[in-house]
Design a protein around this nucleic acid. Structure first.
Lengths: 142, 142
DNA sequence: TATTGTTATACTCTATAACTATA
DNA sequence: TATAGTTATAGAGTATAACAATA
């Protein structure tokens, strides 16, 4: 563990505070509403359907770190809202692949735009500072 | 809303990804355990008791953006664990102020230390970069 | 009458266990 | 027999509504 006065410690603890900020909390809820979803769990599932491959129920459960039975309910809701559809896998009839519908793609994009739109406090940074911030954070997530 | 290619947008979307990472998710749960709390909601409440002023039940509800009745249950749990105590306000007998006990202060500090300890990926930044990052993030949270 | 906090209650989110169908 | 998904059920987390005490 880094010393409590190390720059790395300072940077990280500020980041951690941001996690608990009302700012972020509200933004998630706005994104949930923007996509017309019942709760944040459904949003998380929808955002994980980003890639070109339609994942299986089990694959979704593993990415979300939740139980398979919960994915059943989650996909039931999304399917009820017309955002996804289940298709039986051509290679294994036990497996169901979850495909985004056009409406689902729109909902996901709306939610994504809402989540990624910077909050008002971002105005406190100059353009140059924002660019620096993006670069430094990029090193942490890659 | 900022243009999707603006530096502010880049910075924030990277930040958002980081805040939803499993890394941070796991760290929160370790902090919850370090303080001996039943769930993350209680941790959030405990961390909001940081300042010198003991907040009222209602003030906590507003900061946590939850219902007052839930704060009653939350403070019941914290009080049952000996971490806080309710005191009737001297100026308004309807109001109850929530004070940290010495044990509560210790628990909060343990959780805080766990939450603030930087993960391994922080090593990717030089000391100078970390200092810059801390400064820029600091502008966002103050 | 309006406000603070509590109690009683109900709803939502998530997990465990037992079951069906396919491999 | 083992695996993918579903159903039934139970538990935790959170909200709503009615209430008591104080202002």
């Amino acid at each position: 563990m880094a010393a409590p006065d190390a720059p790395a410690h300072d940077a990280w603890s500020t980041l951690a505070r941001l996690l608990f900020s009302d700012e972020l909390h509200d933004q998630v809820h706005r994104a949930v509403e923007a996509a017309g979803l019942p709760h944040p769990g459904a949003l998380k599932a929808l955002l994980h359907l980003e890639g070109p491959e339609a994942p299986s129920m089990r694959a979704i459960a593993e990415r979300l770190r939740c139980d398979a039975s919960y994915v059943t309910m989650l996909v039931d809701q999304l399917e009820g809202a017309g955002l996804v559809e289940r298709r039986v896998s051509p290679t294994d009839r036990r497996v169901k692949l979850v495909h985004l519908t056009p409406a689902g793609r729109q909902a996901r994009d709306r939610a994504s735009a809402e989540l990624n739109s910077p909050p008002a406090t971002m105005d406190r940074l100059t353009e140059r500072e924002a660019r620096t911030l993006a670069r430094l954070l990029g090193k942490l997530v890659s």
